[in-house]
Design a protein around this nucleic acid. Sequence first.
DNA 1: AGTTACATGTAATACGTTACATGATTCT
DNA 2: AGAATCATGTAACGTATTACATGTAACT
Lengths: 188, 188
Amino acid sequence: MIVRVLKYAILGLLYRQEYSGYDITSQFKKEIGQFWSAKHSQIYPELRKLVDEGLLHFRTQIQGEKLEKKMYTITEAGRKELLEWALSPEPLPETEKDAFMLKMYFIHTLSQEEARILFENQLQQRQEKLVHLKQEYEQLIPLFGEENTSGAMHFDHPHLGHYLVLTKAIAREQSYVEWLKRHVHLLL
Amino acid sequence: MIVRVLKYAILGLLYRQEYSGYDITSQFKKEIGQFWSAKHSQIYPELRKLVDEGLLHFRTQIQGEKLEKKMYTITEAGRKELLEWALSPEPLPETEKDAFMLKMYFIHTLSQEEARILFENQLQQRQEKLVHLKQEYEQLIPLFGEENTSGAMHFDHPHLGHYLVLTKAIAREQSYVEWLKRHVHLLL
DNA sequence: AGTTACATGTAATACGTTACATGATTCT
DNA sequence: AGAATCATGTAACGTATTACATGTAACT
């Protein structure tokens, strides 16, 4: 079951608009970066590969005086392959890697105080991230449409994808924080 | 920030008892596999590397008539490096990859019905996994010690690590299921 | 006798990060 | 003038999966 998720992440980003390699790199630093990302050193070769495979094409655009940038567009073949992937049911990963939880599995290697410090550090980081994500959410309510108004979220809303990943990221961090809080007493 | 988490996963497993490469592979199929794992093709070369680095040594044991297996033990240097890693605060990953959520970000590529099928499929898989994890938890209550009895979980409990990863995996799946249930109405 | 589990390795390939390398444009 | 951002690429290395390869031991 070979997947090449980066391929589909790029095709998906180009589904609605054309982007440069740099733009794609930037997108992975925004909301979707919570669930998928790649460095520019992986993106540029992948873009070339997708062009070679006929799933993308590009035009060269001049920025300012002479800075060339390549604007990529998805082809019909690209849309077809994207749809095929998007439609396929996603199996659960056997392992969702989490180095902090690996350390917790080996908690007996630490003293109670050492474990407590590590645990409270993780709690603080997760809480800070949660605050940050909630702030992002609050700022985007006007874009999403407030609850119980004519602008509420619905399937055809242009920012449904954004809304889903943000609420999911918040749920993930909320759950992490609650689990940490529920179990910190074991280390006190 | 070079990490080599597999190295520490192996050292951690060997902290309390000796294991063969096969045993380590088996451990990654049990509870810790929720948060870290590796295939035998990655484990065997890593074990060799750790021996070369003086963090492990092994003795050859005969199983049955002539089947040789290598039983690995952690060295003092190995314990030292493991502790160093275990003590270091774990930074949050920027990205926690989730291909299903990537598909949800691109939900506008699908029809409402296609999206609903995908979403309900994920909900079912996550619910099944949650049931399975809860069953594991129920079976382990005697090992963990029931709540509000003299056998309740505490820092020195020999299965605290196991308890933590199981409760965390349950929390993760519970949160996933709840998020899916909270948002499925957008696709109906 | 046949199947499953135990047991160990290597080869080829794919995926991902860090470092190397260069230059233009925009903002302060 | 200097810093941050925009812009694109390659090289080296590390991590991880799939496939190849072989053989023993235990269970039914």
